[in-house]
């Protein structure tokens, strides 16, 4: 019993001593941005209200605006690499809103932790659409930006990225909504460019 107590006390002291050190590597913040959707690829297959099957396969350049906001928390493995989890709220073109959840790996191009630096990132994730029947979405981003250190704890990120998304929108045919049970396929592939600002602590 005495040995167990000693081990517990020792582990507690070690974790408390390392707590301050680990906190310096933990990052968190908020990011928001404007998204310009430029390419829409869709494949819809469904039964119309009249009963016949409709197959629409389309790929076109179409410009639509939307926006997103994300909250993130992560860990700095060293002065160059950071891995973070992002949870946000975004609009996907003129289709629907979604909640993306993704993992982002960021590489900084400066050894100085507190200096201004360029960075690049790759982001891959899933999420779900906000529709009457939520379905999974997939999102992949590649981007870069510039980080300005406003203080030792506060950083301002200016970033831009290119992204591709895959989602399942709700369908309508001549303004009549198609019930989910009549939908065989409702895939949409979108490409977009985004610019944004982030605040990181």
């Amino acid at each position: 019993m005495k040995q167990l107590s000693a081990i517990i006390i020792l582990l507690t002291v070690i974790s408390a001593a390392s707590y301050g050190k680990d906190r310096a590597h933990i990052t968190y913040g908020v990011e928001w941005g404007y998204i310009a959707f430029i390419q829409h690829g869709t494949h819809y297959n469904f039964y119309s209200p009249e009963g016949y099957r409709v197959d629409i396969n389309n790929n076109r350049i179409k410009y639509r605006s939307n926006a997103e906001i994300s909250f993130h928390t992560g860990y700095n493995f060293n002065t160059r690499w950071n891995l973070s989890i992002y949870i946000g709220y975004m609009g996907i073109s003129d289709l629907h809103h979604a909640i993306p959840i993704s993992i982002r790996a960021t590489r900084s191009f400066c050894e100085n932790r507190y200096g201004d630096k360029w960075f690049a990132f790759a982001d891959l994730g899933s999420g779900f659409s906000i529709t009457s029947r939520p379905q999974e979405i997939l999102c992949c981003k590649l981007g870069a930006g510039y980080r300005i250190s406003l203080s030792t704890k506060l950083k301002l990120d200016l970033k831009a990225d290119a992204r591709i998304l895959y989602t399942h929108p709700e369908l309508s045919y001549y303004n009549e909504p198609i019930p989910w049970d009549n939908v065989n396929r409702n895939n949409a592939y979108l490409s977009a460019l985004s610019i944004g600002i982030g605040i990181t602590f």
Binding site: R64, S65, N66, A67, G91, D94, H96
Partner: peptide, 12 residues
């Protein structure tokens, strides 16, 4: 962009 983000308009 309020109505655009709500899905009620296409352009800001």
């Amino acid at each position: 962009m309020m109505d655009l983000l709500n899905g009620n308009s296409r352009y800001p």
